[in-house]
């Protein structure tokens, strides 16, 4: 009885330990491919055309969802905070509150989550299917470094696109907020704009865009890593894609907290 319990505890802890080691190994391999991708930014061939293509892909594929989400986020946030502020007659604070929340938190975080779902998944799926159909082997066989050819452009495009899309998110979100505040809730234009201008600092905007850049890096590294090391055929591509989105989303939320904590 006691022996069985000890055995069971032993087995579980060995299992947990192995899972921990597995996670550590994954983290290590992801870091290595991320660093190799970044180092390749400074190594020839430059692959400018591929970088532009990938940036265009991420930007264009994500733009509709970013526009839609940002407009409605700004709108609903304005509606709710107006109702709350109205209780103690502070409706004028709506513009500023929404502006700060969007630029610092909602803009980068929601953009990170949305782009991970839209473009990160596509990157992981593309690299994954290139892996299982031996296209990555073919690159190596032709003496072309797949990290330089495949990972670098996607990494660069992710790092470049995320802040741009976040800036668009911020602007359209504020516009949505303005439309709801002024035309639906009947706030006066100066009332909305003065507080917006007073409260939103360049600091807020820069912090938000810095976060977005970090999220872009995370998405690029995680999606490329998951795709690059895909095994197990079509099912494996599906797993890699899902896991790229999930891991990126969690990393975005956790990193967001730590940046908010360290960069007040």
């Amino acid at each position: 009885m006691v022996v069985r319990m000890v055995e069971a505890v032993g087995r579980t802890s060995i299992g947990a330990w192995q899972r921990f080691l597995g996670a550590l190994e994954e983290l290590g391999r992801a870091t290595v491919i991320g660093l190799r991708g970044l180092a390749n930014l400074f190594l020839p061939p430059v692959r400018l055309r591929l970088i532009i293509e990938q940036t265009e892909f991420i930007g264009v594929s994500s733009l509709p969802i970013i526009l839609l989400t940002s407009a409605f986020t700004g709108a609903v946030f304005t509606l709710q905070s107006y109702r709350a502020f109205a209780i103690f007659g502070a409706e004028a604070m709506v513009g500023g509150t929404v502006g700060v929340a969007l630029t610092r938190e909602l803009g980068p975080t929601l953009t990170g989550l949305l782009v991970a779902g839209r473009a990160g998944s596509a990157m992981a799926a593309e690299l994954g299917s290139m892996r299982v159909s031996e296209q990555i082997d073919a690159l190596e066989a032709m003496a072309v470094d797949p990290v330089n050819y495949l990972v670098k452009p996607r990494l660069a495009a992710s790092i470049l696109s995320m802040p741009i899309l976040t800036a668009i998110f911020d602007a359209v979100g504020v516009a949505g907020s303005y439309l709801v505040g002024v035309y639906l809730l009947g706030m006066s234009k100066p009332e909305f704009l003065v507080r917006l201008g007073d409260w939103v600092d360049w600091d807020d905007i820069w912090t938000g865009l810095f976060k977005a850049t970090v999220f872009g890096l995370l998405m690029g590294v995680i999606s490329c890593y998951k795709g690059y090391y895909t095994t197990g055929g079509a099912a494996g591509v599906g797993r890699a894609t899902t896991s790229a989105v999930v891991v990126t989303s969690v990393s975005v939320l956790v990193t967001n907290f730590f940046i908010a904590w360290l960069l007040p």
Binding site: M130, E134, A138, A141
Partner: peptide, 19 residues
């Protein structure tokens, strides 16, 4: 090894063409 690879051509089982 990369230099040696330049001396090779490989026809893959499922062609492995770039889609």
């Amino acid at each position: 090894r990369r230099k040696v690879r330049l001396k090779f051509g490989m026809v893959f089982q499922n062609a492995a063409l770039f889609d």
